[in-house]
Design a protein around this nucleic acid. Structure first.
Lengths: 142, 142
DNA sequence: ATGGGCCTTCCAGTCATGGGAAGGTCAAGC
DNA sequence: GCTTGACCTTCCCATGACTGGAAGGCCCAT
């Protein structure tokens, strides 16, 4: 299976497959005589694993950890659960932060006429409100 | 007011102030004889505006738009409201996506013993579930 | 005049990903 | 056998919104 076929089989772009290999998330694929990457069933399975973990919002680093646990048939489920729970907590924190933003903005927008007149509570708020304590060290990123 | 004082007055890092200037979000600051940036009251006010807009999760591009509307005393509030509402919709979309991830993962974690044994429904799910349709073109980023 | 705390510019890295160039390979049709 | 077009390879660059750091200039107090 060449990289294009592996990509179609897993929904991971060829670019990403090469990237995952370059950062050591997957082991270097076998090569054909003509230097094409050659993926076996196991590789495809790992790529599917990665794809689903990405769908759940895990970072590449977390996926690396999950993959190593997955490869180890004797891993304690405690470790996996801990990673998952930490990720859930991260997600919840980011969700809360974004919800606070959305709610604040919704309230302002509701008070804005949204017509031809220039008066706008949204701009008034942006130009006068005290800087909110809406800050965190948690990145709002996938 | 030099850049450090402006930074302390607004909560925007000096790095960011220079960055905002470089991308044209704020106009180039005046300079002293010794080439130090010199910020006036109006500049500080704009930086505060930017800071609060960032707190609400607006992108730099959106802030640029909001700033130009803010500077124009005759702008129709309709335009401001439209930007705000689009941003709220973006936030809501990302929130929904992240909530789906968190909920899925919470369910799995609940079924995971989290002990010394290797059996783990989380890994089973990652390695066998059909790839979810959990995708979007909306970036999950601040 | 020396020290340390500012300031300046410039360059590089982050994270996951996409875009594209330049060149090699393969399979099908002629 | 040759061309064509679809693949593959590596490499570099760009994104967004930053942060970090180096090298050098400036300012003020001692």
């Amino acid at each position: 299976m060449n990289i294009g076929q592996a990509s179609r089989a897993t929904g991971v772009s060829t670019k990403m497959i090469r990237y995952y290999e370059s950062v050591g998330l997957i082991r270097p694929a076998d090569r054909t005589d003509s230097n094409y990457r050659d993926f076996g069933e196991r590789d495809v399975h790992e790529l599917q694993f990665i794809r689903r973990a990405r769908d759940l919002g895990f970072s590449v680093a977390e996926i690396g950890h999950l993959l190593s646990l997955w490869r180890d048939r004797d891993r304690p489920s405690r470790e996996v659960k801990a990673i998952a729970q930490k990720h859930v907590a991260d997600l919840d924190a980011r969700i809360a932060e974004m919800k606070a933003m959305a709610d604040a903005l919704r309230t302002l927008a509701k008070c804005c006429a949204g017509d031809d007149r220039p008066d706008c509570p949204i701009l008034v708020d942006l130009s006068t409100r005290q800087t909110g304590a809406l800050k965190s060290n948690v990145r709002i990123a996938r």
